[in-house]
Design a protein around this nucleic acid. Structure first.
Lengths: 204, 204
DNA sequence: CACATAACATACATACATGTATGTATAATG
DNA sequence: CATTATACATACATGTATGTATGTTATGTG
């Protein structure tokens, strides 16, 4: 059967991606040599060049592992926390995002994106993050408008501003945590800040 | 006079720092060669190695150019905006910080710190930023406590949480702007978000 | 005026990382 | 059973950055 060889090859491909994640994280993308990555996976650069076109391609494929569209976050909200409030839906989705970002894989790859890579070749991490950011802001925009229509938002606060403020607060929390993961408890402090913010913007 | 030679040497040192700032910004720290930096300054690597110990030393000395302690920000608040409100002092200091961060030199160097360098040798940009962040949070902590004592803070919101939320919001705004400077007007959008946040936390 | 030193430029030796070319074993195929 | 393609390993050729060693020049000094 040809299938056996295919799954073996796929396994080494995954091993190379795991190794790249580890080495990128430890030494930074620029100082990470393909030799070190291959050896970490118990292979040689020959295997790496067989599966990938080079460091840029490897990096690109690594990022495929961390995507999280808003709808997915909403779907993952625990069933016992279902709500009809738009504002609460957004809030719970944010908490869900924090939950995800705390997981090792998300944490490592985002840490690489934030602090362990510069742009190189045709790869522009900043551009990628900007795109992800815009996408996130866009996906909650109409929810905030609905919340405003429902009268859930504090009077005088327009939904556009609220949406922007939330995303920038989230971004700040996320970056702050990555800056000093030891001193900053993402789950607890993050939850608290998010919840308190929603208290502030919710109409009495 | 020996003085002439000293100021000449100091001028080339500055030129090398300017060149480093430009090349780091354009190509990223890792891909920036000392050769390119020296030539950008109209010199050779010989001059660079005369004034600096290498890339790490060069980078370190570049960062000396951007420091902004809280007291300095308060001192720079326009005289016509003097206030006795603690909360307003913090707010105006934040706006002042935004003003500074928008200036080319601050912008370029922070952009290098955020998106154009990985750690290398004994340099740890993340650690440096974490330190600056902690320092900033610490410097406004007691001001928020004073504001709370004055009854300026919305009831139910403790000063510690407010302080953390503000710094994370600021961080998010700052990062968001650096992520996409074109789509995000630091001065206007930043001012607006900060001002709106202070409206939210201020007691009625 | 000899000369010593500051402030550079030039030259060289070394070290890697990359990309590619070539070798090889194993499994599928006809 | 011969063959062929897959999935790697090995070997090599090249480019490039770095650190240092060695010139070179002008300026100040005794």
């Amino acid at each position: 059967m040809n299938e056996n060889r295919r799954v073996d090859a796929e396994a080494t491909r995954e091993a190379l991606l795991d190794a790249a994640e580890a080495v990128f994280y430890e030494r930074g993308v620029a100082r990470a040599s393909l030799e070190a990555i291959a050896r970490r996976a118990g292979l040689t650069r020959g295997a790496l060049y067989w599966h990938f076109d080079g460091k840029a391609d490897l990096f690109r494929q690594l990022l495929e592992r961390v995507r999280m569209p808003y709808e997915e976050l909403v779907r993952e909200i625990p069933a016992d926390q279902r709500t009809t409030s738009r504002l609460d839906e957004i809030r719970l989705a944010c908490l869900q995002a924090l939950e995800r970002l705390g997981q090792p894989r998300y944490r490592r790859i985002h840490s690489i994106l934030l602090h362990r890579c510069e742009f190189f070749d045709d790869i522009n991490p900043t551009g990628l993050m900007a795109q992800m950011s815009r996408q996130g802001i866009e996906s909650t925009k109409e929810r905030f408008e609905q919340a405003a229509d429902n009268g859930e938002l504090r009077s005088g606060l327009d939904p556009e501003t609220a949406n922007l403020m939330l995303h920038n607060l989230l971004r700040g929390i996320f970056h702050g945590w990555h800056l000093d993961p030891g001193a900053f408890a993402l789950r607890e402090t993050g939850r608290k800040l998010i919840n308190e913010w929603f208290v502030l913007v919710r109409a009495d």
